[in-house]
């Protein structure tokens, strides 16, 4: 067994240090060491998107990142999406649009959709589907997920318009 490595990161805006083996994925580190089990493992090879987290300024499938690679980086997981007790507009829209059934893919969709709305504040249906194609959902047929993302985009834009 190789020596464990001390990794210093910022997770959901809080400094977090953890000790891991180099072979442990970031997903494993988040779930089994840090105790953040919001990101899920559905496939282990980057094809389902359930483990999507934000790493620095990009989203990644955390099953395909080594925990040691996260050293010095900031990470956002689904647990860090809400502001205190106020749900993120995407979280609210997913609930209001019944965009989840079993809920296992939801954390990955929320993180991916959040990144989408930061890049494209009012995405088209096609842009939304392309961006989210790495996130598999087997329950919903995606219809209500797409609607929820669009509804959240409207709400975010309406609020930012009102603030100006």
């Amino acid at each position: 067994m190789s020596a464990k490595v001390q990794v210093q990161t910022t997770i959901n805006n809080e400094p977090v240090e953890f000790l891991c083996e180099p072979r442990q994925s970031l997903l494993e580190c988040l779930r089994d060491i840090v105790g953040l089990t919001g990101a899920k493992e559905g496939c282990g090879d980057g094809n389902c998107g359930s483990c999507t987290v934000r790493l620095g300024d990009r989203i990644v499938t955390s099953c395909l990142v080594l925990g040691v690679e996260a050293a010095g980086q900031s990470i956002t997981t689904v647990e860090g999406l809400a502001h205190g007790n106020t749900l993120h507009p995407l979280q609210k829209a997913f609930l209001e649009n019944a965009a989840l059934q079993c809920g296992i893919c939801t954390p990955g969709f929320l993180i991916a959709a959040d990144a989408l709305l930061q890049k494209h504040p009012q995405p088209t249906e096609e842009q939304t589907r392309f961006w989210l194609a790495n996130n598999l959902c087997r329950c919903t047929g995606y219809d209500k997920i797409i609607r929820a993302v669009q509804a959240a985009a409207h709400e975010i834009n309406a609020n930012s318009g009102a603030a100006q």
């Binding site: 779930r31 089990t37 919001g38 990101a39 493992e41 689904v78 647990e79 749900l87 989840l100 954390p107």
Partner: peptide, 10 residues
């Protein structure tokens, strides 16, 4: 389920 608190088996 939207905040990651729901506990699944794994």
């Amino acid at each position: 389920k939207v905040t990651g608190r729901a506990l699944y088996g794994a």
